[in-house]
Amino acid sequence: MASTTEIKARVPRPAMDLANWTTRQWGLATAARRGLPDFLVIGTKRGGTTSLFNYLLMHPGILGLYPQVRGRKSTDYFFRNLHLGEPWYRSHFHTDAHLERATRRLGYRPQSGEASPFYMWDERIPERVHELAPSVKAIALVRDPVERAWSHYQERVQNGVEPLSFPEALEAEERRTAHELERMRNDPDYHADAWDWYAYRQRGVYLPQLETWTATFPREQLLVLRSEDMYADVQSAFDTTCEFLGLPSVELPTRKTFNASARAPMPESVRAELTDFYAPHNARLEAFLGRSLHWS
């Protein structure tokens, strides 16, 4: 039997565009009756964000973004689509009536959310989220930053935007991303691809990113998971997340990894340099989390 993705691939592009436009218009027309996210999976990039979100969608009490058939993971609202306005954002969530029906069927209120690794990386986002949905719960996955940087680099190569070798890219990182943070601070609408694409090293310094969330939200509204724990035991990480969200846990039908990329070995000299670089940052993160992360 064909999957939703396969069926969508067979639908002509204009028909897809029309369907998307129509559902979005309907969503906008009914935006006043639609809710906001209960949770956000905020990162980290190449840390299992996509996998965790897909596992959550397997839960009967988790609703995907409207319309669910599109299978979207994120709206990119808080960094790219802010100008489209709150009604547009609400149009991605389900109506109160839909939630009530689901509540009656499930015996508890279902939850909605989205996932974007940029939500942890863009320091402007927590305040924006708080303004709109102060009770939202955030879930962050943190992965050994050395492995994360390498995986991030390989993904950029696969996307055709990385002409440099890994050592060259690390060396060029500051030049590539200089002034972008300043611009983001000065211009609420500014989004820099370079800030997303090329911050291989800085994006693995997790504590300041998590602190932007704890500076805005109560600490108990943030769950920090270790990516390696999820890779080793998907069900356990899923159960922890369900408990955090106040949902009953269920047995996952699959534990496959999503959005994984082929791995090539990292140059050893780079690994050693990155390991040294991250050591003090990881130590501070461990102190913040109150547990050892067992990273390289």
């Binding site: 935007v161 060029a172 030049r175 590539r176 200089a178 090329y198």
Partner: peptide
């Protein structure tokens, strides 16, 4: 700009 950043040129460069 994105190509120039990609090849490692800073803004002034």
């Amino acid at each position: 700009n994105h190509h120039l950043a990609a090849i490692g040129l800073g803004e002034a460069d």
